[in-house]
Amino acid sequence: MMESPFPLEPTAAEAQAAIAEEFAFFGDWSERYQYLIDLGRKLPAFPEEWKSEEHRLLGCQSMVWIVPEGNAQNLRFHAISDSAIVSGLIYLALRVYSGRSAEEILATEPTYISDIGLAKHLSPTRSNGVAAMLAFIRDTAKAQS
């Protein structure tokens, strides 16, 4: 199992609060987009053999691959995109949900999206992609619980 590149807050709720706090430091959306791009660069290396149709997330305009591992007590997700901003969005979702139990994943609504104003600043296709990624994470947790 690969090590987590994310600061692992004790709970998903605390991870969401930390994300909201970090984004509050930035005055405008150009700075927030740059921060998202910087976060995306922190994603760990993603094995080339995982970049297959089997792991491709449908519903995203960009190419996104996501691989789950673990069990109901500890589900981890590995993901990457060919888009810098989408990679940042992946980083945020994995920070909240990866390394959590299926029960905690299912009990945690992604409030960080509205808390940081992301919902208003994503194009419809990016919003659809984020929704597809969150649905994949929830569906994986449901299948494990």
Rank of each mutant, 00 (worst) to 15 (best):
G117V: 06
D38H: 08
A143I: 02
V64K: 01
Q144C: 04
D139A: 09
T125I: 11
L58I: 09
L89K: 04
E9D: 13
Y35N: 07
K142S: 15
W29E: 12
A45Y: 01
D82K: 01
I66S: 09
H55M: 08
P44L: 09
L57N: 02
V64D: 01
E69V: 14
E22G: 00
P44V: 06
E103C: 00
G27E: 13
A17W: 01
H55L: 06
E53H: 00
N128D: 11
P44C: 09
H78V: 00
G59Y: 10
I116F: 11
G99V: 04
A15W: 12
A131W: 00
Q34R: 12
S52K: 08
V96C: 05
H78S: 15
A45F: 01
I37Q: 00
I116P: 08
Q34G: 12
T140H: 03
H78L: 15
P10W: 04
L106R: 04
R95M: 15
A107M: 02
F46L: 10
A143G: 10
A20V: 12
F25H: 13
M1A: 13
S145I: 13
I113D: 03
L89I: 10
S52N: 12
G117C: 02
L58F: 05
I113P: 03
A12S: 14
D38T: 15
Q34S: 08
L36A: 10
L8G: 00
L106G: 04
P124L: 11
W29P: 09
I137A: 05
F23A: 09
